[in-house]
């Protein structure tokens, strides 16, 4: 599904390397988790994969199902099936949540040469999915993320993911700021989407989320590299001992 090789990324504006050779391979249907200290480059990886401006790829490649991602426009990557649940979802004043999503869904369908969803069909689908995430009609009408609480914003990201049905989902700290019940809702939403044709990359600081969304592989990122990969037990080790030992190992 996703194949990242020797990815080196710096900032466009200043001379600073952030990713210093990331290798990561995620098979179809797999769930991978990335943990790592603050500032290690986790969000940067997600931005570079999705095509945000301001970063310069100095070496390496990233393929989604055999297609080179790094040469595509952000919307082409989206249409190819890449989705990023943002660590900090963006507010768009005056644009209804529902309008936003319908525009997005239809833009992707168009790009893939599929028919657009009619207003009626769209409404039916979104109502059902919103209900599962306990997002009420009012939140669907309100402007995108404006005045949403932290947890509401994160649930809204999952709703967008559910509507867009991407192939490769990157979740950047979707668990941060969620209360216990919301965490269950979100995990349930993610688990409901798990299938053989869809993969996940879950960035998190907490083992707790991984109790709900069972990862196949856990990676530890530090200082722009993946320093260790292992099974779910790796997350437990971090939870109990922190990063000191792991960092010492590679030093």
């Amino acid at each position: 599904m996703l194949d990242i090789k020797n990815l080196h990324v710096g900032l466009e504006e200043e001379d600073k390397q952030i990713l210093k050779g990331v290798d990561l391979k995620i098979g179809a249907g797999e769930v991978h988790a990335i943990m790592g200290p603050n500032g290690s480059g986790k969000s940067t990886l997600s931005y570079v994969l999705s095509g945000k401006d301001g970063y310069e790829v100095t070496d390496g490649s990233a393929e989604l199902n055999g297609e080179e991602l790094l040469e595509m426009e952000p919307e082409e990557r989206a249409a190819a099936g890449l989705f990023l649940a943002f660590q900090y979802p963006v507010e768009i004043p005056g644009v209804g949540n529902m309008t936003f999503l319908r525009t997005a869904v239809n833009a992707q369908r168009k790009a893939r040469g599929e028919d657009e969803l009619s207003a009626g069909e769209f409404l039916k689908v979104i109502r059902a999915k919103a209900k599962d995430l306990e997002i009420d009609a009012d939140m669907l009408k309100r402007p995108v993320n404006v005045g949403f609480s932290g947890g509401e914003k994160k649930r809204n990201e999952i709703l967008q993911m559910a509507m867009l049905e991407p192939k490769m989902c990157i979740l950047d700290e979707t668990d941060s700021g969620l209360d216990v019940d919301a965490m269950k809702l979100v995990s349930h939403g993610v688990n409901a989407l798990r299938d053989a044709g869809r993969s996940f990359l879950v960035i998190t600081h907490y083992q707790r989320l991984l109790d709900h969304i069972k990862p196949d592989v856990v990676h530890i990122m530090a200082n722009g590299r993946i320093i260790k990969s292992g099974g779910p037990e790796l997350a437990l080790e971090v939870e109990n001992n922190g990063y000191a030992d792991l960092l010492a190992e590679v030093a």
């Binding site: 999705s50 095509g51 945000k52 401006d53 426009e73 952000p74 919307e75 990557r77 989206a78 249409a79 989705f83 990023l84 943002f86 979802p89 963006v90 507010e91 768009i92 936003f100 999503l101 525009t103 997005a104 869904v105 833009a107 992707q108 790009a111 967008q160 867009l164």
Partner: peptide, 12 residues
């Protein structure tokens, strides 16, 4: 950031 958010969701 708003434009990137929209584009990540598939809009040109």
């Amino acid at each position: 950031d708003q434009l990137f958010y929209c584009r990540q969701r598939g809009m040109d």
